[in-house]
């Protein structure tokens, strides 16, 4: 397999995981950028544990997920039902703090980066196996009591409270699962790229993830899959003179999608038409009765 294809497939899968990690808490209207901090922490942890301590990959993966779950657990105590923008700032500040700590920590390579992470055979297969597993999990969450309750919270918090939904509990649940997925993505990223740089986990990454979620469509889990491949492909499709402007392209896409198709390319209505009765009856009813 060519190197370009290898990384295209690998990165796309990791961004799908991160896109889902962003998608889940947005089910209750929260943009949880803490996932980027979780990703950075677990990536560096994974790389360090493999290179310096020779820990085996499965152990690192499990501990990585545990670390980020604990981070999610602690933060969600405070911001489980905070307004979207508060969650945004908590995430942004955490990302900045983590980045600065990495940059100033000699052991982790500082601003230069962290290299020579050991190779794990069949990484791509492992990544896609886990991707399908996580996809299945999210599908189940979306179609569970939690998913239906989340749809109500997104449309109207007061209605949700009056229906007996515990907003804080549901917000915490989504934040914790989201951080856990980000922990997995971080570990996988370390072993896919086998080198790390603090520059990677920053505002550019957050913008890119926003683009994945909102261009693809935030109302279903499928939009993320589509746009992760699509956006990852953009730099490959164009000559490098244009591809180097990809932040402009992503930014413009983000503005255009909000202006022209606020729910994103793949919407719940679209899937509804394709496959009647399968997608979130609760949400659709409420939306209709309001408009």
């Amino acid at each position: 397999m060519s190197e370009v294809l290898y990384y295209f497939l690998g990165f796309s899968a990791i961004y799908i995981l991160m896109g889902w990690a962003l998608y889940l808490p947005y089910r209750v209207g929260q943009l949880n950028y803490l996932i980027v901090a979780c990703m950075a922490i677990t990536a560096y942890f994974g790389g360090f544990a493999a290179r310096e301590w020779n820990w085996p990959f499965p152990v690192i993966l499990i501990i990585g997920i545990m670390i980020s779950t604990i981070i999610g657990l602690i933060f969600s105590q405070a911001i489980g039902k905070a307004p979207c923008f508060t969650v945004v700032i908590v995430g942004l500040t955490s990302v900045f703090i983590v980045k600065t700590v990495i940059e100033n920590w000699k052991l982790l390579g500082g601003t230069v980066g962290f290299f020579h992470i050991p190779n794990v055979n069949g990484m791509l297969i492992i990544i896609y196996g886990l991707l399908i597993l996580v996809g299945f999990l999210i599908y189940r969450i979306d179609h569970s009591r939690w998913g239906r309750a989340a749809s109500v919270v997104f449309v109207d918090k007061d209605v949700a409270v009056s229906l007996g939904v515990d907003i804080k509990k549901i917000g915490m649940f989504f934040q914790i699962v989201s951080c856990a997925i980000a922990g997995m993505a971080g570990t996988l990223d370390a072993f896919l790229v086998r080198s790390l740089s603090p520059e990677f986990f920053t505002f550019g990454m957050i913008g890119y993830l926003m683009c994945i979620l909102f261009v693809g469509g935030y109302t279903t889990m499928w939009g993320v899959i589509f746009s992760a491949f699509f956006l990852q492909g953009i730099p490959l499709m164009f000559p490098s003179s244009i591809a180097s402007w990809r932040q402009v392209i992503y930014g413009a896409l983000l503005v255009l999608i909000i202006l022209l198709r606020p729910e994103g390319i793949i919407t719940r209505k679209m899937l509804w038409r394709m496959k009647p009765k399968a997608y979130f009856p609760v949400n659709t009813q409420i939306k209709n009765s309001k408009s």
Binding site: G29, L31, C84, F85, V88, F203, G204, G207, M210, C211, F214, W245, R246, Q247, V248, Y250, G251, A252, L253, L254, V255, I258, L259, P262, K287, S291
Partner: peptide, 25 residues
């Protein structure tokens, strides 16, 4: 953006993030 139906203030945040990305690049 504010005139679009069913759109809340989050949409302006997302769009301004896009604008920020363009300006930065």
């Amino acid at each position: 953006i504010s005139s679009i139906k069913d759109v809340d203030i989050n949409a302006t945040f997302i769009a301004s993030m896009g604008i920020a990305m363009i300006m930065m690049d």
